[in-house]
């Protein structure tokens, strides 16, 4: 435990929403019982070409890989990312994303002689680590800066991480096979024993 961890926890409890610029694609009001709706990420996405999709999938898997539990690709995160970039991002955010993807598409083959998704996993992570080091001054990395609106000018690497982490831990696979899922606990026990390796409960409400 340190000051930074404390700030992270404390920030979760202090509400505050930053006004965002309007985006596009207005949805009409929900008329559907959501718990029985189709999964969001099952909707068709048609923003990216196949080469771009391979890169996005490889990046997502490098961020959250399959280990003894499923990883980002198992959880459908690449589809989630493409949908979010297409339907949820505003123009500024989408421009940052597409420019970042263009950069990866061109720079990696020039440097390594093959596309990002064909690098070995250590090589993939090394590329991302360099991007993270270059972006570390972004407010996105500020300790505790998590309960906030999406940061519209956040660098590409931050977009990738936020969408991957969010998409993974809110996916059915992430909620049920990596975290613990229990929508109907039926009781409350505040002194429930914790065993080594236990993961957190999958939450049912989300920071905005």
């Amino acid at each position: 435990m340190n000051r930074r961890e404390f700030l992270e926890c404390a920030a979760l409890l202090v509400s505050g929403t930053v006004i965002q610029a309007p985006a596009f694609a207005l949805n009409e009001e929900q008329q559907q019982y959501l718990a029985t709706a189709d999964d969001y990420a099952s909707r068709p996405a048609n923003l990216l070409n196949e080469a771009q999709r391979r890169i996005v999938a490889a990046v997502a898997e490098a961020i959250i890989p399959r280990t003894d539990t499923p990883g980002a690709i198992d959880a459908g995160v690449p589809d989630f990312i493409e949908l979010m970039v297409a339907d949820w991002f505003n123009e500024q955010e989408r421009a940052i994303f597409m420019a970042g993807l263009e950069d990866l598409s061109a720079r990696i083959p020039a440097e390594f002689g093959k596309p990002y998704d064909e690098l070995d996993s250590a090589g993939q992570v090394a590329v991302l680590e360099r991007m993270e080091a270059a972006a570390e001054d972004s407010p996105w990395y500020q300790p505790g800066n998590v309960r906030r609106a999406f940061i519209s000018d956040a660098p590409f690497i931050c977009q990738l991480k936020e969408l991957t982490i969010w998409g993974f831990f809110t996916s059915e696979t992430g909620m049920k096979q990596v975290l613990r899922y229990n929508p109907m606990p039926m009781k409350f026990n505040g002194e429930y024993a914790r065993a080594p390796g236990d993961t957190t409960w999958a939450p049912f409400s989300f920071y905005r």
């Binding site: 929900q30 959501l34 969001y40 990420a41 505003n90 609106a149 969010w166 831990f169 905005r208």
Partner: peptide, 16 residues
């Protein structure tokens, strides 16, 4: 009781 994956944008606000 709608989990994140059933919600539009997985629970992120529909900003527009």
């Amino acid at each position: 009781h709608a989990p994140g994956y059933k919600q539009p944008f997985h629970g992120k606000p529909d900003r527009a």
